[in-house]
């Protein structure tokens, strides 16, 4: 019996952003933390070190969206052979930061409004599974972790130069919640997604006012968790998501 094949729609060709955007400095270790699913290994293989470095360059836009990544020039820069570089690029392909046309050189995946909306919708679906469980089943120790993150965000919020660190910690809180869900499939999907989204958050959440608003939401989220109030937690998540989407899209339009 012949079954119809699985076919695919042409991926929506989003309008790429050409202009470079300055980013405040980043916090050490954020890329490794996500590449290796929440474990920050003490030692990294050469391949993994290359992967971390390229990831940082992509997220921080030292490598531009759409830009080619030449294996040989990276190998030369690190004084290594091409093999670990191409393995590192394969790992990054799985994270969605790098793509390669068949047998051609790798390039940094473009960023676009359409891409961002797709990423956010996907993550909302993952979090939609994770959040209710977290609110119902988390412990006071979990809340303490989230409060520590929140405190750290408060320290960073006033300083424009540390805006990237701020969104990174905010994003870590979400990763923490996802990891606590006990669903390894979701936890595994969240980390690479987070790296892709950081590229966008870093340009969206740029003013102290925006950051203060995020702080308020996180504080509320912790309170609703403590009250085991799933409905209010989910409503808050939807509201804050909507606001962040609007901010990022506005920033993308302004940059285009």
């Amino acid at each position: 019996m012949q079954l119809p094949p699985i076919t695919m729609e042409d991926p929506a060709a989003g309008r790429p952003l050409a202009r470079s955007i300055d980013l405040p400095r980043a916090r050490a270790g954020y890329a490794a933390y996500r590449l290796f699913h929440g474990e920050e290994p003490a030692t990294l293989s050469v391949k993994d070190q290359v992967a971390v470095t390229i990831t940082e360059r992509i997220v921080e836009r030292r490598l531009q969206p759409g830009q080619k990544i030449l294996e040989q020039s990276i190998a030369d820069e690190f004084g290594i052979s091409k093999a670990p570089v191409s393995e590192a690029l394969m790992l990054l392909e799985y994270t969605g930061l790098v793509a390669s046309a068949a047998r051609k050189s790798a390039y940094v995946t473009p960023v676009s409004a359409a891409e961002f909306e797709e990423l956010i919708e996907y993550r909302a679906a993952l979090l939609g599974v994770v959040f209710p469980r977290f609110v119902e089943r988390h412990t006071s120790a979990d809340r303490k972790v989230l409060r520590d993150y929140l405190e750290h965000m408060q320290e960073l919020a006033q300083d424009d130069a540390r805006a990237f660190e701020f969104v990174e910690v905010a994003d870590r809180s979400l990763l923490y919640v996802a990891m606590q869900s006990g669903n390894r499939h979701i936890a595994r999907a969240m980390s690479p997604l987070s790296l892709q989204l950081l590229r966008y958050y870093a340009i969206g959440v740029r003013t102290p006012k925006q950051r203060r608003q995020l702080l308020g939401w996180w504080a509320d989220a912790i309170r609703f968790s403590e009250a085991r109030d799933v409905n209010r937690f989910m409503a808050l998540a939807a509201q804050s998501r909507g606001a962040v989407i609007a901010e990022v899209l506005a920033a993308l339009r302004a940059a285009a």
């Binding site: 699985i6 695919m8 729609e9 929506a12 797709e118 990423l119 996907y122």
Partner: peptide, 8 residues
């Protein structure tokens, strides 16, 4: 594959 979200 026809819902508009390639990640999903």
């Amino acid at each position: 594959h026809h819902c508009g979200n390639s990640r999903v």
